[in-house]
Simulated assay, not measured.
Amino acid sequence: MSPQTNPNATRAPAPTHMSPEEWQARIDLAACYRLVAHHGWTDLIYTHISLRVPGTAHYLINPFGWSFDEITASSLVKIDSDGQKVDDSPHDVHRAGFVIHSAIHTARDDAHCVLHLHTRAGMAISMLKCGLLPLSQHAMMFHGKVAYHESEGLAVNLQERERLANDLGNHMVMVLRNHGTLVVGYTVAEAFSSMWHLEKACQAQLDAMACGQELNFPPDGVAEQISRLGFNKAALREYPEGRSPLGWKEWPAMLRLADKVSPGYAV
């Protein structure tokens, strides 16, 4: 039997008032929330993962006050670019928390999924003047793809959105100084994979720096090569599939993991 699906997983059918595309988006996003909880990346009920509803200018986000391991496909709230609810959901939305996400979604057509975290390692890297260094293979995947945004305090000022968008530019990762990390994905799968590798890169850098020994940087050209072969949707002859596996190949396995460690999200 192919491992691509878990026959024991519970998948509720799409509600009659909802398109199959939106329902699948909800399932993927709910799974991502559960996986973030499983890996210990949460900050109580704070931080967010948002996803554009396919074919619309609306977005899905978590019900404010729920822990990430409680999120289900049907509990996700549909909002507009100002964080206002556009459906009859009974759940609250953390509007202040959507300032960062709305800035990215509205500025980037390819920013379908925005994943923002306050992990211990991500916050530590955001405090270092040097930022993320090209020390590990995981870090080198993001060479030339990391932006930085200086802290403006709690993200409650709508005027900050323009500065956030300008600082991000066309990068896939942004380090929010003295705050945390953010990744942009064309899909939930890409955003989750990006954050996984970014988090590992942050942890490895902090471990190496804590040793107090001289750091070994790669030879010239290595970081550029790894970045090109990493998160890249372009055709790449180096891979049997013709493109990098990062950001899509892992997702079926991650869904199976979510089914095992946190079932019930796809309802």
Rank of each mutant, 00 (worst) to 15 (best):
G83E: 06
V53R: 00
E238T: 12
E214V: 12
M254N: 03
S194H: 04
T10A: 12
P240A: 15
P219D: 14
G264P: 02
Y148I: 03
V86W: 07
V156D: 04
G180R: 01
T72D: 09
G221V: 10
L76M: 10
G97R: 00
D80K: 09
P20W: 05
N178R: 14
D87T: 14
A14M: 09
R256T: 11
R26M: 09
E224L: 06
G169D: 05
P54S: 10
H112D: 12
A223R: 02
A223C: 07
L133D: 05
L236V: 09
T5A: 14
G180K: 00
I45C: 09
R95T: 15
P54L: 13
R108E: 00
H149N: 06
G212S: 12
N8V: 08
W196I: 06
G40N: 08
C113E: 01
S227W: 02
A235I: 08
S2K: 13
R161D: 01
L164V: 04
S75T: 15
S194C: 10
Q4D: 13
C130G: 10
F64N: 04
D220G: 04
R120F: 05
E241C: 10
N178G: 06
R243F: 03
I226D: 07
A208R: 02
Q4C: 10
K233H: 14
Y33K: 03
K85S: 09
Y148E: 06
G264T: 07
G65R: 13
K200V: 12
Q84R: 15
V188L: 06
S81I: 15
L128H: 08
W251R: 01
Q213P: 01
E70C: 08
P90Y: 10
F98S: 05
T5L: 13
S19V: 11
A12G: 11
H38R: 08
P90D: 10
L229D: 08
H17W: 12
S50M: 11
I61Y: 01
L51P: 03
N8Y: 13
D80A: 09
T181P: 05
R52Q: 14
L182N: 04
S193K: 01
D110K: 06
L117K: 01
